[in-house]
C-alpha cells in the first residue's frame, strides 16, 4: 500500500501531490517499512559524510548507467540494483540529493523509465533537510535483498532520442533549461563545470530557454503551482496536453524540469532528451541556432 500523500497546503495545489513530500512529512515516516529513502548526489562521497537515517545511496553515474554503452541499465540489472537496495515493486521511494535535487530528479526519471509507480521527491532536497538542522547519520543500512521483477525499460513515453527531436522540430515545443550563455552558444559548458567535449555551441532551433533554477525558490524547494504556471504555461504559451521535450547537457537538469512539468503542473506528454547537448552539439548535420532568438526550422 502506498504511503499517504503529504497533506500540506503547498503540495496539495500540485497536479500530482502524490509525487512530492516535505521534509516535515518525511521526518515523521523514517521508520515506515513501506518507504525507502534514496539519496542521489552529484558528489559520489557526500552520502558517506552523513545522510538521512535509513537512506540508501544510488549513484547516477556508477549505478544507473550501462557499463559500456551510453545508455541506462537493462531490466535485469535494474531489478538487481533495486533488489539490493531493499526496494520492491510496491515500495514508496522518496528521493533526495544535492544541487537542489538535480540528480535525485534524474534518478526519479530513470526509475520511471522502468515504470516504478511510487517515486517521490523530497522538496528542497538535501540542502533543505540540512539547513533545517534535521538528523543526518553515517550509519549505512544493510537492507536484506528483496525480489524486484525484471521489467523492460520503456523508452517511448518519457524519453526522447535524437531522431525523436528531429521529428519534433516545428511540431512541438522544446524547452532548453541550460544557462543563457549555453543557450546562445557563448559557452559550451555550465559556468564552472567541466567541459565534456562539445564541438558546437548554441541550441536546438525553436527551443525556448528557461534555466532550470527558474523553477525553484531560494530554499531549493519547487515554486508554487501558480508560480510554475506563470513561468511555463502562460510564460511560454504551453498547455498541459502539449508534447514537450526538455533537454540540457546530459539530461540531469532537464529531469528536474520534466518532473515539474509532469507532476507539479500535470502536463501529460513531456519527454526528456537525455542525449541533450553533449549529443546534439556533436552530431553531424543537425541544425543549431545561436544567439538569443529561438530560431526557425
Amino acid at each position: 500500500m502506498p504511503a499517504p500523500i503529504d497533506p500540506s497546503d503547498k503540495i496539495a495545489q500540485y497536479a500530482h501531490p502524490e509525487r512530492l513530500v516535505s521534509t516535515t512529512w518525511l521526518a515523521q515516516r523514517l521508520k515506515d517499512p513501506g518507504i525507502v529513502v534514496v539519496e542521489s548526489d552529484e558528489d559520489v562521497l557526500l552520502y558517506e559524510t552523513g545522510h538521512i537515517p535509513g537512506a540508501v545511496k544510488v549513484d547516477w553515474h556508477t549505478e544507473l548507467q550501462h557499463p559500456e554503452m551510453r545508455d541506462y541499465l537493462d531490466g535485469a540489472a535494474f531489478a538487481a540494483l533495486m533488489g539490493s537496495k531493499g526496494i520492491t515493486r510496491d515500495t514508496t521511494i522518496v528521493l533526495y540529493g544535492d544541487k537542489n535535487n538535480w540528480w535525485a530528479a534524474y534518478t526519479a526519471w530513470v526509475f520511471t523509465l522502468f515504470g516504478h509507480s511510487d517515486v517521490r521527491l523530497l522538496d528542497g532536497g538535501r540542502g533543505l533537510w540540512s539547513a533545517e538542522g534535521r538528523e543526518l547519520t553515517t550509519d549505512v543500512p544493510a537492507p536484506a535483498p528483496v525480489e524486484y521483477p525484471t521489467v523492460e525499460r520503456d523508452d517511448t513515453t518519457i524519453r526522447a532520442f535524437r531522431e525523436d527531436v528531429l521529428a519534433h522540430l516545428g511540431n512541438g515545443p522544446l524547452v532548453d533549461i541550460r544557462s543563457p550563455q549555453e543557450y546562445t552558444g557563448e559557452r559550451i559548458a555550465i559556468p564552472d563545470y567541466p567541459e565534456e567535449g562539445v564541438l558546437r555551441g548554441g541550441h536546438i532551433p525553436t527551443a525556448r530557454n528557461v534555466p532550470w533554477a527558474t523553477a525553484v525558490a531560494e530554499d531549493g524547494t519547487y515554486k508554487t503551482r501558480a508560480e510554475l504556471d506563470a513561468i511555463y504555461t502562460s510564460g511560454l504559451g504551453l498547455s498541459a496536453d502539449d508534447a514537450v521535450i526538455t533537454y540540457c547537457r546530459i539530461g540531469e537538469r532537464s529531469s528536474h524540469t520534466w518532473f515539474a512539468l509532469t507532476y507539479l503542473l500535470g502536463y501529460t506528454a513531456v519527454r526528456n532528451y537525455d542525449g541533450s547537448w553533449t549529443e546534439w552539439g556533436n552530431a553531424v548535420r543537425v541544425p543549431v541556432a545561436t544567439g538569443a532568438e529561438a530560431g526557425t526550422v
Binding site: D43, V44, L45, L46, E48, T49, D98
Partner: peptide
C-alpha cells in the same frame, strides 16, 4: 564541505 570528493 558539500563537495567531499573534490576535497579528497
Amino acid at each position: 564541505e558539500e563537495a567531499p570528493t573534490t576535497r579528497g
